[in-house]
Amino acid sequence: MSELKLRINAEMKSAMRAKDKARLGTIRMIQAEIKRIEVDERIELNDTRVMAVLDKMQKQRRDSISQFDEAGRQDLADQERQELEVIKTFLPQALTEEELAGLVDQAVSESSAQSMQDMGKVMGILKPQILGRADMGVVSKLVKAKLAG
């Protein structure tokens, strides 16, 4: 079993002991998504795939928060924020803007990218390095700006 899945299991047990229903619910949601993928694909997920699942769940929460805020549904937005905070505890430390810019510069030079047509090469290099540590939309904008300018 992957290290991250073991950690998620341990956190679920501690949330049960602490009777922290909100945290427990989110952790169970994470486990259900991991289990769904494992059953559908008939594989056991490694840490990289679990990280991708968590990153996707994080993005979904961010999208939901912005939609609920626009609709004036503060109660639902707050619930999504709470879930997002729990999901973030299993992801690595987020990259700072300076670190992100440095990685983008490095990937552009490493791929010898010259124009927007080379964006796929740059993103291919960046994605494994920043999975779960930065919003891919922000990274995409940085790469576009770097290749355009």
Rank of each mutant, 00 (worst) to 15 (best):
A22R: 09
N46F: 01
G25L: 09
M16D: 07
T48Q: 10
T48K: 09
I27T: 10
A145H: 05
E98D: 13
V139S: 02
E85Q: 08
G120S: 09
P128E: 05
R73I: 04
V138Q: 10
Q74I: 11
Q82K: 09
L142R: 11
L24G: 10
Q106E: 15
L84T: 06
G25I: 10
S112R: 06
I27W: 07
V122H: 04
L142M: 13
I87V: 14
M51G: 08
T48M: 02
I34A: 02
S140C: 01
S14A: 07
S14R: 12
M51I: 08
I65D: 04
V143Q: 05
D40I: 09
R49S: 08
D135R: 01
V39P: 00
L100H: 01
E33N: 04
L76M: 15
M12N: 11
A113F: 00
T26H: 05
K56S: 14
E41S: 10
L76D: 12
S2Q: 06
R17S: 14
M51W: 01
L91M: 05
R23H: 08
E70F: 06
F68L: 11
K56Q: 12
E41L: 13
M119V: 13
M1T: 11
D135S: 06
A101G: 01
S14K: 15
D105V: 02
Q106F: 03
A107N: 07
M1E: 13
A134T: 07
A18E: 15
M116G: 01
L54M: 04
Q129T: 00
Q31F: 03
E70G: 07
L24N: 11
M12K: 15
D47L: 10
P92Y: 03
I34V: 15
E98Y: 01
M57S: 05
R81K: 15
E99M: 02
I8A: 11
V53C: 07
K35Q: 12
E110G: 02
M12S: 06
V53P: 03
A22M: 11
K13G: 01
L54G: 07
M136Y: 07
S140K: 15
Q74A: 15
S66I: 08
E97A: 15
S64Y: 11
Q93R: 11
A32H: 10
E98G: 00
Q106H: 06
G72S: 02
D135L: 03
S14E: 14
D55G: 14
